[in-house]
Computed example of a mutant assay.
Amino acid sequence: MDDTNSRIPGKTAHPNPRRATVMNCPYCTSENLFPDMETDNAWQCRDCCRVFSVKLHGHIDRGV
């Protein structure tokens, strides 16, 4: 069994309060996500090997 993920710092390492919290990878829907230490505010998906970030641009007017 490959223990690569257990040897790499996880979600609790180097907390960044500006990093948007995501539950699933937008590419493969995996939950195997870890903060990317090389790219500020980005996440690593350890299943599909992508690094991505999420940005909130604001809210739309619902007309209510």
Rank of each mutant, 00 (worst) to 15 (best):
Glu31Tyr: 00
Gly58Trp: 09
Lys55Trp: 04
Glu31Leu: 01
Thr29Asn: 13
Arg18Glu: 13
Gly63Tyr: 05
Val22Lys: 11
Met1Arg: 07
Asp61Gly: 08
Tyr27Glu: 00
Asp47Gln: 09
Thr21Ala: 01
Asp47Leu: 07
Arg7Glu: 05
Cys25Met: 06
Asn41Trp: 10
His57Val: 14
Ser30Val: 02
His59Met: 14
Glu31His: 04
Cys48Met: 01
Val51His: 11
Asn41Val: 11
Thr12Pro: 01
Ile60Asp: 07
Ser6Thr: 02
Thr4Asp: 06
Pro17Lys: 12
Glu31Val: 01
Gly63Asn: 09
Phe34His: 02
Thr21Glu: 04
Trp43Phe: 04
Asn16Ser: 13
Met1Ala: 14
Ser30Gln: 05
Arg7Tyr: 05
Leu33Gln: 05
Ala13Arg: 07
Asn32Ala: 07
Val22Ile: 12
Asn16Val: 07
Cys49Tyr: 11
Cys49Met: 12
Ser53Ala: 08
Pro26Arg: 06
Thr39Val: 15
Ala42Arg: 08
Pro9His: 10
Met23Thr: 07
Tyr27Met: 05
Cys28Lys: 02
His14Ala: 08
Thr4Leu: 08
Pro17Tyr: 06
Phe52Arg: 03
Gln44Asn: 13
Glu38Trp: 09
Ala20Glu: 14
Leu33Arg: 05
Gln44Phe: 04
Met1Lys: 07
Ala13Asn: 10
Asp47Glu: 12
Leu56Ser: 08
Gly58Leu: 09
Glu31Trp: 00
Asn16Leu: 09
Met1Ser: 13
Ile60Asn: 11
Gln44Pro: 00
Cys25Arg: 01
Tyr27Gly: 02
Leu33Tyr: 03
Ser30Asp: 01
Arg7Asp: 04
Arg50Asp: 02
Phe52Asp: 02
Ser53Arg: 14
Asp61Tyr: 09
Pro26Met: 04
Cys48Leu: 05
Arg18Gln: 10
Asn5Gly: 11
Arg62Glu: 15
Arg7His: 04
Asp3Ala: 00
Asn24Tyr: 13
Asp36Gln: 15
Asp2Pro: 02
Ile60Gln: 11
Arg19Met: 05
His14Cys: 06
Asn16Cys: 14
Pro26Ser: 05
Leu33Lys: 06
Arg50Ser: 11
Ser30Cys: 04
Glu38Arg: 14
Met37His: 15
Asn5Arg: 09
Lys11Pro: 06
Met23Val: 00
Val51Phe: 03
Arg50Ala: 07
Asp40Val: 09
Ile60His: 15
Gly10Trp: 02
His14Thr: 03
Lys11Leu: 02
Pro17Phe: 07
Arg18Thr: 10
Met1Phe: 08
Val51Pro: 03
Cys25Ser: 09
Cys28Ala: 08
Cys49Lys: 15
Trp43Asp: 04
Asp47Ile: 00
Arg18His: 10
Thr4Ile: 08
Met23Phe: 05
Cys28Asn: 03
Asn5Trp: 01
Asn32Asp: 15
Asn32Cys: 02
Asp2Ile: 00
Gly63His: 11
Pro17Asn: 13
Asp3Thr: 00
Lys11Glu: 11
His57Gly: 08
Asn24Ile: 06
Arg62Met: 14
Cys48Gln: 07
Ala20Lys: 13
